[in-house]
Design a protein around this nucleic acid. Sequence first.
DNA 1: CCGAGTTCACACAGTTCA
DNA 2: TGAACTGTGTGAACTCGG
Lengths: 249, 249
Amino acid sequence: MTFSSNLFLPIRLFVLVVGSNWVRVQHRYSIGGKFTYAENKATTTVNLLTGKTNITFQETICTERMVEVEDELRGTSGEIKSKRSTIMEKSSSNRSISKKSLSTEVSIECKICGEFAKYSHFGVVSCNPCKMFFKRNGEHGKDALKCPYNGHCEININNRHVCSYCRLSKCFDCGMQTELIRCSYSKKDKTNQKSASVADAEPVVALKKLTPIPNLNILQSDQSTLTVNKWNLISKIYHIAMMNIVNYQ
Amino acid sequence: MTFSSNLFLPIRLFVLVVGSNWVRVQHRYSIGGKFTYAENKATTTVNLLTGKTNITFQETICTERMVEVEDELRGTSGEIKSKRSTIMEKSSSNRSISKKSLSTEVSIECKICGEFAKYSHFGVVSCNPCKMFFKRNGEHGKDALKCPYNGHCEININNRHVCSYCRLSKCFDCGMQTELIRCSYSKKDKTNQKSASVADAEPVVALKKLTPIPNLNILQSDQSTLTVNKWNLISKIYHIAMMNIVNYQ
DNA sequence: CCGAGTTCACACAGTTCA
DNA sequence: TGAACTGTGTGAACTCGG
Ligand SMILES: [Zn+2]
Ligand SMILES: [Zn+2]
Ligand SMILES: [Zn+2]
Ligand SMILES: [Zn+2]
């Protein structure tokens, strides 16, 4: 994917998704004239959750100059001929910097309760409490619980412990998957335990189609489906990357 | 093979296959008028996997001008005659630039997950993560793993880490070969270990025919078998080459 | 340059205990 | 219930050999 930048420099910008939460932004541009120019490659890797950035900046300065050479040639008849020709001198120097940066303000909230979240758990960006809650209650299903109110409680960080039914409902609504709950660590009989749980528990689940994980799929293959928020986030990343680049100069 | 270009310049374009992953595109064109023109030859070598380009640009400017020359001739009778004549002066200057470029717009996708891939690993064009995954899990076989769903997960870059069983299945389906997984580096007894392992373990493997690595044979000898995708890729290469040429001016 | 190998930090499971 | 921990698979970045 190539962006056209709105800067004056002709910068080619490549954005790649790396892993689930990392986006890599790579700039490549040449600056300078026809015969003296710098080729720059700047790679910024941004973690969308923590905002950490790793930057690699590589610069190659190329100098090509036309040197005029004048040769004196003495002809057979004794007169001096002058032959003028040009040759190309080329030199290039390389330097590269790499730098790790700390977190910036890009932070992510738990989809369930709104608390600060760091990772994606069971397929949804969620905080540790909500992760633990789903692990405990996810397998039983929400039918085992009961809402003391009308079943439409709004869940936030303060009241999340009040109604388990609505909290679990919201977990499922946000896309948490019980399939991602694994069995306990056991090095032996790994396959036995797994097959047992799948066979016993819910054969209906086994027929379910695998839904793509709803974590930050910032850049999916079809770019037309990107929402405004995602484009805004991309431009934010682009801005961060650009600022980091500019700071090198 | 010759392309006709859609520029106004009459450019002759030659495309050659160099090695397995390199394609060389050569342009030749003249520009200018009858007496002043430039003969240009631009050679772009494109790596189909990495998209790197090496460019050589050679320009010969030919100037032929009619120069009016006035010679004083002293006639036999002593009077001065002026003879006006035109002669053809021809000069030519040469310059050549060669430049290695970075661009990666021609990219190849991992057959397993679709991520950007640079090399072929274990017999299949694949990304680094999928390479590592196959190296770790290839030898155990897919029976050691279990799909939490129905065993037909579609693998892409976002969900590849969810179901190891289906990922490994796809690795095998795409043609990854466990035979290409080597032992670890061991500087001593290298030959001994190799011969021992072949002799002891699997004589069947030794009898198997090594299948040719299915990397990008973009331009095979029979061009009629080129698919639409390959033609598209070629035109993409052509575009990149052209853009690189144009940027020199 | 390509394609094997290795290493280490991280993401995201599970577990324990107040 | 949730803070704090352990354990395991993953992948970016590197080395090595042909
Ligand atoms: Zn939460
Ligand atoms: Zn409720
Ligand atoms: Zn892959
Ligand atoms: Zn599966």
